[in-house]
Amino acid sequence: MFRFDNPIYLWLLLLIPLSAIIYSYSVRKCKQRMKKFGNTELMRQLSPMISQRRGWVKFALAELVLFLLVLIIARPQVGSKLATNRQREGIETIIALDISNSMLAEDVVPSRLEKSKLLVENLMDKFSEDKIGLIVFAGDAFVQLPITSDYVSAKMFLDNINPSLIGTQGTDIGKALQLSINSFTPKSKVGKAIILITDGEDNEGGAEEMARQAQSKGIKVFVLGVGSKEGATIPMSDGEELKKSSGEIVKTRLNEDMCKQIAAAGHGVYVHVSNSNVADAVLGRELGKLQKGKINNVIYSDFDEQFQALALLVAILLIVDVLVLERKKRW
């Protein structure tokens, strides 16, 4: 299994396009100054040893070195030792987590999204022989973590979840349920459950039909409704609140009726998530009713660092950068 031990440093990769923009701007400004100084063709003839192409080559080398350095400090690792690889008795659970902007509302402390993540983490702490998968969705859905019994990796992926992971806003619960159904271990006869965590707002439709399909395949759908009927405003990253085009503040409310309908269609239960810990107890009790079956648990207990090859490549690129001069060779 491959992983980054410090994945938060991967955000530094944003420096690569930023530096490219700055470098392009500086090259363009330099050309404008040269035009003011004199005729461009004449300047080129007077300085035949200057090579613009070599400047771009050196910049590309610097960008590649920056890319590799970011990967190094993120600590790439590969699992080397198995803690266990034997059959155990457990269930399979896919958690579908809503990460639309409305989940940033703070009618549940500290916010709908953070409360949901805390609830999922508490659920993982109660698992021992089970497998868990993680799907995030808004207007689109994708697998954040394939189904696994490696709870350490699951918590690591959970920590990095935020609304910026999906650019398409909305709440397409139907797509999330469809992806969840396809994410279970094929032909597995263990008890299976989908835990849908959402505020149910701006649903795109088709959720109840997908919940019925899940039920027909022996998969129960539990729905955790996060938020309040009174609603709350949505804080933005800049500290301001999301507003409509008319200038009025947007207020997001829990669509509890729709959540209950989805749970009923999936033969599961609906649980309202508030500032109490009632949801944890109810969900744990319902999951305990599922039939346990034999599953293969594969957990890596030790990981080998993989930065050495990247560090060697960085050293080679730095040497090449030194050897490549910005002026042309005489020959």
Rank of each mutant, 00 (worst) to 15 (best):
K328G: 00
V108H: 10
E106L: 04
K187N: 14
F184C: 06
G239I: 03
S111F: 07
K243E: 06
L13W: 02
D98H: 05
I73D: 00
L325N: 12
Q178D: 07
A263R: 11
L158W: 11
I166C: 03
S100C: 05
L145W: 04
V27D: 03
L64F: 07
P163T: 11
D130N: 12
V70H: 02
M156V: 10
V271G: 09
I99N: 08
V322F: 14
Q32E: 14
G174K: 08
Y25D: 00
I50Q: 06
F59D: 01
L242A: 11
S80K: 07
E326D: 13
M258L: 15
S164W: 10
E63Y: 00
L61M: 04
V78N: 09
I72P: 02
L118M: 15
E240H: 12
P110H: 11
E209W: 03
E305S: 14
K155F: 06
K192Y: 03
T168Y: 12
K155Q: 13
T84P: 00
M258R: 15
S26T: 13
G247L: 06
D280Q: 15
A105F: 07
A141T: 01
G139Y: 08
G200H: 02
Q52C: 08
Q261M: 13
Q178S: 07
I16L: 06
K58N: 05
G218C: 07
V136T: 07
I295T: 11
L317W: 02
F37L: 14
L287G: 12
S102P: 08
A74G: 04
L196F: 01
N277G: 12
P235E: 06
E256W: 11
F127W: 11
P17T: 04
S246T: 14
P163M: 04
V322Q: 10
E241C: 06
C30P: 03
S100E: 06
A96E: 07
D304M: 05
Q291G: 13
S51L: 00
G227R: 09
E106D: 09
S47R: 12
K81D: 04
Q308Y: 15
I166Y: 02
S26I: 06
G38H: 11
R112N: 01
K289V: 13
K29N: 14
E230R: 14
S116W: 05
P110K: 10
T148G: 06
L97H: 03
F307D: 03
N122G: 15
Q52D: 11
I94N: 07
T40C: 06
D321S: 10
R28Q: 03
K294S: 13
V282E: 14
L318D: 02
T93P: 04
E106M: 13
K192H: 04
